[in-house]
C-alpha cells in the first residue's frame, strides 16, 4: 500500500506539472506581445538584462499594441467581432428559446413533425451546408454583408434542442395551464414565467453562442470579402499573411483578440460550465 502522503504529493505534483504545461503557451503569448521583433527571435520568454531577476524589463515595449491600434485595422475588426457576436448571441438565444417554448408548451398541428425534423438535423455536419449556403446567399444578394453572416446562424438546431430540454424539465405544464386559466397571454407567460425558469440555460446559451461567433473563422472567411467588414479571426489571419515574421505584433493581436472572451468567461464561469455539462450528464 502506498502511504497517503506520498500519494498526495504525487497527485499535487502531477496537477502542478500539467498546469504549468497548460500555462506555458499563455506566458509565451503575453511575453511575446511585449517584445520587439528582434527580442522575439532572441529570447524565449522575457529578454535577459540587468533589471530585477536578471530580466531586461526596460526592453519590453507596448509598441506592438500601439501599432495594432493606429497602423492596422484591428480596432475596426474588434468592433466587427463585438457586433457580430452580440447580435448572433442575442438573436439565436431568443429564437431558440421561443422555438423551444412553442414546441413544448403549445399544441398545434405539425408540432411533432417540426420537432422530429429539428432533432434529425442535429446530425448534419456544418461543412455540408457551406457550398449550398454560399449559393443561396449569392442568390439573395447577401454575400459580403453582415446579414449574410448573421441570418443563417440564428436557428441552430442544437439551440432548439437545448431549450426544448430546458422547457420540458424546468417549466411544469400545470404552471403554464394555471397562468392561462388566470387569463395570461402566451407572450406574457413566455416572458414572465417560462424564461425566468430556464434562466441558467439562457445564460449558458448566450455565452456559448457569443463564443462560437467570436471564434468563427470559416463563415466570415467565405461570406465577407471587404476588409472593413472582417472580424478579428479573419483580419488577424490576413495580418499574419502580410506581417507573418513580426511575431511580436501577431502575438499582441492574438492577445487582444482572446482577452475579451477570457474576461467574459471569468465573469460568468459558473453558468458556462453548468450549461456545457447539462446536456451530457443529466440527459
Amino acid at each position: 500500500m502506498i502511504p497517503t502522503h506520498t500519494l498526495r504529493a504525487v497527485i499535487y505534483g502531477l496537477l502542478i506539472f500539467f498546469s504549468v504545461l497548460t500555462l506555458i503557451p499563455f506566458a509565451y503569448l503575453v511575453a511575446g506581445a511585449l517584445k520587439t521583433k528582434y527580442d522575439f527571435a532572441a529570447t524565449l520568454f522575457l529578454p535577459s538584462g540587468d533589471g530585477f531577476l536578471g530580466i531586461g524589463w526596460d526592453r519590453l515595449t507596448l509598441r506592438n499594441f500601439g501599432a495594432l491600434l493606429f497602423d492596422f485595422p484591428v480596432p475596426r475588426a474588434m468592433l466587427n467581432s463585438f457586433f457580430y457576436s452580440a447580435v448572433h448571441a442575442v438573436g439565436a438565444t431568443l429564437l431558440c428559446a421561443m422555438g423551444g417554448y412553442g414546441l413544448t408548451k403549445l399544441h398545434f398541428p405539425g408540432r411533432s413533425l417540426i420537432t422530429g425534423v429539428v432533432l434529425l438535423s442535429l446530425i448534419i455536419p456544418g461543412p455540408l451546408l457551406l457550398a449550398p449556403s454560399f449559393q443561396l446567399l449569392y442568390q439573395l444578394g447577401l454575400l459580403d454583408r453582415y446579414a449574410g453572416l448573421i441570418l443563417p446562424g440564428l436557428t441552430p438546431a442544437f439551440g432548439v434542442f437545448l431549450f426544448r430540454q430546458a422547457m420540458l424539465r424546468g417549466v411544469p405544464d400545470e404552471l403554464v395551464e394555471a397562468a392561462r386559466i388566470d387569463g395570461a397571454g402566451e407572450i406574457r407567460i413566455f416572458l414572465e414565467l417560462a424564461l425566468p425558469l430556464v434562466r441558467p440555460m439562457i445564460g449558458a446559451f448566450l455565452l456559448i453562442s457569443f463564443l462560437g461567433a467570436w471564434n468563427n473563422f470559416i463563415g466570415p472567411q467565405i461570406i465577407l470579402q471587404s476588409p472593413e467588414l472582417q472580424p478579428l479571426s479573419v483580419a488577424l489571419n490576413n495580418l499574419r499573411g502580410v506581417y507573418g515574421t513580426d511575431y511580436g505584433l501577431i502575438m499582441a493581436g492574438t492577445l487582444v483578440s482572446i482577452a475579451p472572451v477570457m474576461c467574459l468567461f471569468l465573469l460568468l464561469q459558473r453558468e458556462f460550465i453548468s450549461g456545457l455539462t447539462a446536456g451530457a450528464v443529466k440527459g
Partner: peptide, 13 residues
C-alpha cells in the same frame, strides 16, 4: 476558450 483560429495563430511561432 481561445478559439481555433487564435490557437492556430498562437502555435505558429
Amino acid at each position: 476558450l481561445v478559439g481555433l483560429p487564435f490557437v492556430a495563430i498562437l502555435f505558429g511561432p
